[in-house]
Simulated assay, not measured.
Amino acid sequence: MTVYAADKLIAQARLLAAEYRRTMGKPLPGISNEIAEHDAVKLLRLEPRPEGETGYNAIDPSRDGWRVQIKSRTIFDESKSGQRIGQLKLDREWDSVVLVLMDEDYEPYEIYEADKDEILEFVNDSSSSRAKRGAMSVARFKIIGRLVWTREDGLESEVWDNQSG
């Protein structure tokens, strides 16, 4: 499949997911993860993980094969607190997690990154059984991590270091 075809399919998936939610009143299961993985790879200049590898979703070639787990959260109502991200795979081999935040049209507006050491420090210091299992809120992830991409500004050059083309 060509890059153009993948971009076109993701654009159609965004439209379908948004319309499905407006019509049915609930999100279409699993679609936000697929869209977020595509967006993170494209926007952060990552490469999809090699076939057969598990525990992470992409590799950052500019950081010598840095393994990246990709998570997503579609925020339909920013006034609601307690938004959670999917459980992190703490027992797998990876180097960082990126969290792609998307709006009600499944368009990314911010991407945050947190290194595994930062996440494990939070988990080890936490008394929460949820945290011990790798679950955390969007707000906590934003505190632990750092903003690496925004819809308005693109890549944050001081933070994200894969600027070489």
Rank of each mutant, 00 (worst) to 15 (best):
Q69G: 14
T2Y: 00
Y56D: 06
G55R: 04
V68F: 10
I10S: 00
E37W: 02
R45A: 11
S81F: 10
E19V: 01
P48G: 08
P29C: 01
S72T: 12
E53W: 04
V68L: 13
I85M: 15
R21Q: 13
A6S: 11
P50H: 10
E47M: 08
S62Y: 05
I31F: 11
Y20H: 14
S62H: 11
I59L: 15
R73G: 06
F76T: 10
I31W: 08
A58C: 09
L46N: 08
R22I: 01
R45C: 12
D64I: 05
G55I: 06
R63D: 12
Y20A: 00
H38T: 01
G52Y: 12
A17S: 15
Q12G: 05
D77K: 14
G82H: 12
E47R: 07
V68P: 03
V3L: 13
R63F: 10
A40Q: 09
G52H: 09
I85C: 11
P29A: 12
D60K: 01
I35G: 01
E34F: 09
H38I: 01
S81Q: 14
T2A: 01
Q83T: 07
S81P: 12
T23D: 04
A58D: 11
I31R: 03
S81H: 14
L16Q: 07
K8E: 12
R63W: 11
I85E: 05
S62M: 11
I75V: 15
R22M: 02
E19L: 06
G65V: 10
Q83W: 13
S72A: 15
S79T: 15
A6R: 09
P50G: 14
I10Y: 01
Y20E: 00
A58R: 03
T23F: 09
H38R: 03
I70A: 07
L15S: 13
T2F: 00
Q83F: 09
